[in-house]
Amino acid sequence: MENRILLVTELGPDGHLKSSIRSLLAAAKALKGDTDVLIWGGDTTSALVEAQHLPGIHRVLNGSGATLAEGLAEMLCALVRPLARQYTHILTAATAIGKNWMPRLAALEDVAMISDVVGVESSDTFIRPIYAGSIWATVCCPESLKLMTVRTTAFPGVEGERTEPVPVENLPCPAAMPLSTRISVHTHAQEGRPSLENARVVVSGGRGLGSAEHYEALLGPLAEELNAALGASRAAVDLGYAPNDVQVGQTGKVVAPDLYIAIGISGAIQHLAGMQTSRVIVAINKDPDAPIFAVADYGLVGDLNLLVPELTAALQK
């Protein structure tokens, strides 16, 4: 049977398509089959045209309306569920939103779900990390409908645009449900920095920074110089040096930038799981035996309080 694949993608805060859709396209390509893209949001106008020009797809399904603006799991399930059985595979990125609604849909459809897919072996066999990424499991899913969240960093994005737009099918916007409502949103100020998921360079700090003041004072200028996003280890988040949404690791965000600079991070397995597919890794740490050096392309042993300002100053030249 021919695979029929649905890629469900959320929009960025600017209303445009997120680049992660191109990684979902890569995963779909590995699965082989007819591929549709579903976009959803309060207003999908900008993203719709972008989606219509994605390579290798058949059509775009458009879910646009007030009840979808908040990305609530209950609403996304109401949107996707009526279509679900038209497909053999439904994929979404393993983001906070994707991890929230996909398992709900799986239970509604009475199918097992595969989380955090990092590899596609065949149309029913997938690789996913377990135990904080220290082990990879190869899992066979015999369900007729295969639902999965995809770790997009594991799939290099498909490039290209089509010249002729694909057709659009507008989906009915689900009616409001009383189960849950969003009453407020607090977005952490990024101060003009790129977001962790999209940044070409990530500067991350750990316990070695010593305080929230040091975290910002030492890493902020370096990040600015490199146009980098700021990240943190779980230890730094636990100690209150950095907000939780910049935590890099198995239970936080998984990133794979061109350059990842780990500062004062020892390299616990759960942190490594979140960054070890970065193209180039630099580690600065005072402990020459820190596990982070085992994955770093370039290691610098010494006092970060001296080395980081020195690095920032050298870049400014």
């Binding site: 805060p13 908040e70 609530l72 983001t95 906070a96 939103i97 189960l179 849950s180 409502t181 969003r182 009453i183 407020s184 949103v185 607090h186 977005t187 952490h188 977001s195 998921e197 907000p243 939780n244 949404d245 965000k253």
Partner: peptide
Amino acid sequence: ETDGGTETLRL
């Protein structure tokens, strides 16, 4: 906790 900060849901 969300990817960009936090949100408050009323259930």
